[in-house]
């Protein structure tokens, strides 16, 4: 059987907020190592890779590997029935066709449970090669979200140019052009830091719509890491973490726009 107890059930709500725009349904793969999800959006432009480590759960038991196909809109409905600080237990019998979510209030005087039908999803997994990226940018996730939101007003594409000077985000459209430049800084407040690890300068162009969807994960982590190399997909990574627990990560891969 599978049983996983998450002290902060709100974490799963935030994870759902971070993937529900991109995916209608997805398989959660359970193993001894934890819960993993890998799925592409319908148009095969982006991929979500979620890893929640077994160690991040208060209790974690997975007797045999199983894949739980879930409709994410249904899962959102169920998670809406919980409070952010509820303790969440997810459980399923081997070969079951339902998964159960149990919510316990912090003081223990309210317990609710919801069964959700599982789906048979024929999901293809992609092998993602280990890559040394030419540019790795670490920046505050709120800043990333704001930049992407602001520039999306201009055009359907955003160019990200990374060089020794820093990072420049640009977008052009009917109303004009927007450029936002971030210098590397070493401000005393490390939370505001933008750090660039550069092997060679890279400029790539991406669809604004997907970057905006990725930015929905900003609630999971104060930092975001963008990794780029010429002519390969961008990686946008958010740690899934609180001050006292490292749950894992959510990574988004996004295919670049390429000159015709």
């Amino acid at each position: 059987m599978f049983e996983a107890r998450l002290a902060e059930g709100g974490i799963l709500k935030k994870v759902l907020d971070a993937i529900k725009e991109l995916l209608n349904e997805a398989s959660f793969d359970c193993s001894e190592a934890g819960l993993q999800l890998q799925a592409m959006d319908n148009s095969h432009v982006s991929l979500v890779s979620l890893n929640l480590r077994a160690e991040g759960f208060e209790n974690y038991r997975c007797d045999r590997n199983m894949s739980m196909g879930m409709n994410l809109a249904s899962l959102v409905k169920i998670m809406k029935c919980s409070a952010n600080d509820d303790v969440l237990t997810i459980k399923a019998q081997d070969n079951a066709d339902v998964v159960t979510f149990v919510f316990e209030s912090k003081n223990g005087d309210r317990v609710s449970d919801f069964d959700m039908k599982l789906m048979n999803l024929d999901q293809e997994h992609l092998g993602i090669p280990e890559t040394d990226y030419a540019c790795v940018i670490k920046m505050p996730s709120n800043e990333f979200a704001k930049i992407v939101r602001d520039l999306s007003q201009f055009g359907e594409s955003i160019a990200i140019a990374c060089s020794k000077q820093g990072v420049k985000f640009s977008s052009t459209g009917d109303i004009g052009t927007g450029n936002i430049k971030l210098a590397q800084n070493s401000s005393a407040d490390s939370d505001d830091k933008v750090v660039v690890d550069l092997q060679e300068p890279v400029t790539l162009t991406f669809a604004s719509r997907y970057l905006n969807s990725f930015a929905k994960a900003a609630g999971l982590s104060e930092k975001v890491t963008l990794s780029m190399s010429p002519d390969v997909p961008l990686v946008v990574e958010f740690k899934v973490a609180t001050s006292d627990n490292d749950y894992g990560y959510i990574r988004y891969y996004l295919a670049p726009k390429i000159e015709d």
Partner: peptide, 14 residues
């Protein structure tokens, strides 16, 4: 105009 590429042209199916 830049064209959207597909992830499938970068990553192989497992």
């Amino acid at each position: 105009k830049a064209k959207q590429s597909s992830l499938m042209s970068f990553f192989q199916k497992k």
